[in-house]
């Protein structure tokens, strides 16, 4: 432990010395690490960051539900459900293949431009829709891995008691599957939290867009630092929490012995 702390400290001191002795450092420092500028921009960026949090929260709930529907569709057996299964597969392939920023640009600029009166024009709305579409493709794969990891004997036990296929899924398979995939789910949500900044490219004033406005006004980039600090303040606790869950899970499995 002491060695780990020591070597980490030495490493950071070396890096810090190297950076602060670089020829461009005084300039970079003025441009990116201006304390006065930080104090001036932080409150505004923080206020804008609330929009990131709002987008994150709404998208997250929708993703959890929509992805579960996709995963269940893909797990339906038999030839009758082939079209639904195929649709879910094509969907997942498509939305995992297209870069996030492209989907956001196409939907965010394209959908409102259609000029249809019955669809919302808000770029925030379309930003959220894009994030939900993309992340659901990933999250449905996570759910599916969870469903596949439940041993078929669990289904046999449930069905043998007379539970229908739906009851078996709801009572026996999904509760176990979801518990197993909480850590990878949280990982995806760390990505989602960061990607809310992409909605700013549509013109929504979230943390990134706000810091860009500040930078353009003052020609000082410290506002970006404000935004970075805010994102990290949310994602780091989420990452540590995920690690803790994984560790706890592993300990339990060792203690429990069997599956």
């Amino acid at each position: 432990m002491a060695i780990a702390l020591g070597s980490t400290a030495v490493f950071f001191v070396v890096v810090a010395v190297a950076i602060t002795h670089a020829p461009g450092w005084p300039e970079v420092r003025r441009q990116f690490f201006d304390w006065g500028e930080f104090k001036a921009t932080f409150p505004e960026v923080a206020r804008a960051f609330l929009l990131n949090v709002k987008i994150f929260c709404i998208a997250e709930v929708l993703i959890l539900v929509f992805a579960l529907v996709l995963a269940v569709l893909r797990s339906l057996p038999g030839p009758v459900f082939f079209p639904l299964r195929a649709l879910a597969i094509v969907y997942a392939d498509l939305f995992r293949g297209i870069p996030t920023i492209l989907v956001i640009a196409m939907l965010g600029f394209g959908a409102p431009a259609l000029g249809l009166s019955y669809i919302p024009k808000s770029v925030i709305f379309w930003g959220i829709v894009s994030l939900v579409l993309i992340y659901s493709a990933y999250v449905s794969e996570v759910y599916r891995a969870g469903i596949d990891s439940i041993h078929p004997s669990q289904e046999a036990a449930a069905r043998s008691l007379g539970l229908s296929r739906g009851q078996t899924l709801r009572r026996v398979i999904l509760p176990q599957a979801v518990r197993r995939v909480i850590p990878p789910l949280l990982n995806d949500f760390i990505g989602l939290q960061k990607d809310t900044a992409l909605v700013g490219t549509l013109g929504a004033i979230e943390a990134f867009q706000q810091s860009q406005i500040d930078t353009n006004a003052t020609f000082n980039f410290t506002a970006y630092l404000s935004a970075a600090v805010l994102f990290v303040a949310i994602t780091i606790p989420l990452a540590r929490f995920t690690d803790w869950l994984v560790l706890r899970d592993r300990r339990r499995r060792v203690a429990g012995g069997t599956t």
Binding site: S153, Q154, A156, A157, A158, R159, S160, L161, G162, L163, S164, R171, V172, Q176, T259
Partner: peptide, 18 residues
């Protein structure tokens, strides 16, 4: 399902819901 509820089966590996 109506048939299965009239027949109980117990497996070698217990298969309780964990």
């Amino acid at each position: 399902n109506a048939v299965r509820r009239r027949i109980g089966i117990v497996f070698q590996s217990f298969n309780l819901f964990p």
